[in-house]
Nucleic acid binder design. Structure first.
Lengths: 142, 142
DNA sequence: TATTGTTATACTCTATAACTATA
DNA sequence: TATAGTTATAGAGTATAACAATA
């Protein structure tokens, strides 16, 4: 039956499912320290090493002005820091502070509680499906 | 390797993937007739038959005041209509108008274009994974 | 009193347009 | 001129608290 599904039908199913799941994840206000968008950017900087603001925006798939705001709040909270670029004074190299690393650990754990609880009830096959789907979704946009 | 993955690790992967995909889907401003949240509610009313406002909010997993706004805009655009409930005058029964049905067809096609384009490039196995993942995700929150 | 829904308000998220500083 | 980033502004999306109407 999946074989008979058109791209448009498949797209509709995925779109609605992703939208609703994202809504539920975003509404998990477990800890008011940082928002989900801030946490996501912070994780990216930690994972992908020191980056310029533009590079973080590209990876997170938001426009530069949106990232400016996110980074400003992270910097104000001393979760990231900026150091001068050696050759280009327009750019600043952004890296995660020790406090940022600690917060990622705490916040990720707290935020994932809701999701992890439900994942516990899944079969090994369902879990495998989700891991593969995450990989496929990430590949879609690149 | 998936077997060795903790719930928290799995949750992180899914959370980031869903967040970024949702961002991309939402930013698809292909047609300014309705927003993605409005379209989603409209599709729900069409699919699940005539519903009260509270029922739509529950299915869409938003709080009642959020749905009030969404429904008000849909009604102003004459995409839905309300009829009195036979027994309970607090409720109004919401249904999709003919214009609403036409808009769903047009808008869904336009919005899914971006996604459908990318889905075309996927293997049958990847498509199958996405369909199954959508089912698992929908099941998670219920 | 309990339930359904709305109004008032505020905050998050994100975008586009215009601007500054540097290359 | 072109590029990296920021500031200004606005609109979408959603929530909580307080309220009104009806059961």
């Amino acid at each position: 039956m999946t074989a008979a599904m058109t791209d448009s039908e498949l797209a509709s199913i995925i779109r609605l499912s992703v939208l609703r799941t994202a809504r539920r994840l975003r509404s998990q206000r477990v800890n008011t320290a940082v928002t989900l968008s801030q946490l996501s950017a912070l994780v990216t900087v930690k994972k992908c090493g020191p980056l310029s603001a533009g590079e973080v925006a590209a990876i997170e798939r938001v426009q530069p002005p949106s990232m400016t705001k996110i980074l400003a709040s992270l910097e104000a909270a001393e979760l990231i820091e900026r150091t001068a670029h050696a050759e280009d004074r327009r750019q600043a190299i952004i890296s995660v502070t020790d406090a940022g690393r600690r917060l990622i650990d705490d916040e990720t754990r707290a935020r994932d509680e809701w999701l992890a609880e439900r994942l516990t009830g899944l079969s090994a096959q369902d879990r495998e499906t989700l891991v593969r789907a995450a990989e496929v979704l990430d590949r879609l946009g690149s």
